[in-house]
């Protein structure tokens, strides 16, 4: 099996590469590339994302044919794709970080700044927080409810269709921290930095 991490110059993806390498060891073939032919022929795709919504969308768009290839992979062919952090946020129709920016439109909804109740909650939301599982998700196999995950973000994805939400976390309000729809998965937290529990989620995704 081939798992591809999309390298579209979206900032620091070393940790994603390291943790997937650790989990994939001896099991699957891992590629890190922006080559659309390799992406097309892959079995699973990981879409990381760091920095701002706008900078990630701009980077994706700057690689010729990449967005169409990803869409064909995940939406038309319904093959497994995992978006991490801004990788997940980009599923939305629109994002409001820096300036209003069009997202991939794979899941209806928007990405807005976390309402920190006039400074009562510090932003970014940095650190370990518990996830509350909202529905069964295949990437949460053997993951206990209230497990700790590592978060670093100031913006949140608000999907229109609430049935896609697979877990939330409590920070100022209930923040969507993972989604699942068909074979499209996303986590707002960083499984690659979430210790053994995070590696288990990666393992679940690889084993799908």
């Amino acid at each position: 099996m081939n798992v591809t991490i999309v390298d579209y110059q979206s900032g620091n993806i070393s940790s994603v590469i390291n943790s997937f390498t650790e989990v994939a060891k001896g099991k699957v073939n891992l590629e890190v590339t922006s080559d659309i032919n390799k992406i097309r022929s892959s079995d699973k795709i990981v879409l990381p994302g760091q920095g701002s919504f706008k900078s990630c969308v701009d980077s994706l768009n700057s690689i010729n044919g990449l967005v169409d290839t990803l869409k064909e992979f995940a939406i038309t062919n319904k093959k497994p794709l995992l978006g991490i952090c801004v990788g997940l946020q980009m599923f939305a129709d629109i994002g409001y970080e820096e300036v209003e920016t069009k997202g991939l439109g794979w899941m209806s909804g928007k990405v807005s700044k976390i309402d920190n109740q006039k400074g009562k909650f510090k932003l970014p939301h940095i650190g370990w927080n518990e996830i509350e599982i909202q529905k069964e998700s295949r990437i949460f196999k053997n993951i206990k409810n209230k497990s700790h995950m590592y978060f670093v973000h100031s913006y949140e994805f608000i999907p229109e269709d609430k049935s896609v939400i697979s877990s939330t976390t409590d920070y100022a309000s209930k923040i969507v921290c993972s989604v699942e729809k068909d074979n499209l998965f996303g986590t707002q937290f960083h499984p690659e930095k979430s210790d053994k529990t995070g590696l288990k989620i990666i393992d679940n995704f690889i084993k799908l």
């Binding site: 900032g11 620091n12 760091q50 920095g51 900078s55 940095i126 670093v152 973000h153 100031s154």
Partner: peptide, 17 residues
């Protein structure tokens, strides 16, 4: 010495890092 380094770095890599 140069607070612009913070500005430039957070713009380039994101505030999170």
């Amino acid at each position: 010495k140069n607070v612009d380094l913070v500005k430039e770095a957070s713009k380039k890599f994101g505030s999170q890092c």
